[in-house]
Amino acid sequence: MKRRVFAALLIGSAVGGSLRLAAETSNEVKILAMKFDFTPDTVKAKVGQPMTLVLTSMDRIHGFKMPDFGIRTDILPDQETRVTITPQKAGSFTFFCDIFCGDGHEEMNGTLVVEA
């Protein structure tokens, strides 16, 4: 069974990524988490354009942290965790798993590429 989890997360960061409870946005990107990868591990975004990351784990609990956007949430198996961001600045921003998940945890990361 799949449940939708609406993640209410902190707002505010140096980059100014704003965040709100996800409503249906046309711009959704699914990201799968599985030891020790995010798929896809490069996600494209556009400055000023809201986008929703739909996070699901295929195996165990993982974390999703994007410090530049002040975002962190757990990613649970068989659940969708939705995070909406509106990037305010172009650049490459790292996201990574912040729940230790085994030998390879340190390499479990990806990049959000924000284009102007």
Binding site: K65, P67, D68, T94, F96, D98
Partner: peptide
């Protein structure tokens, strides 16, 4: 280095 998870929550 928060982007490398070199922190304590």
């Amino acid at each position: 280095q928060p982007s490398w998870d070199w922190t304590t929550a």
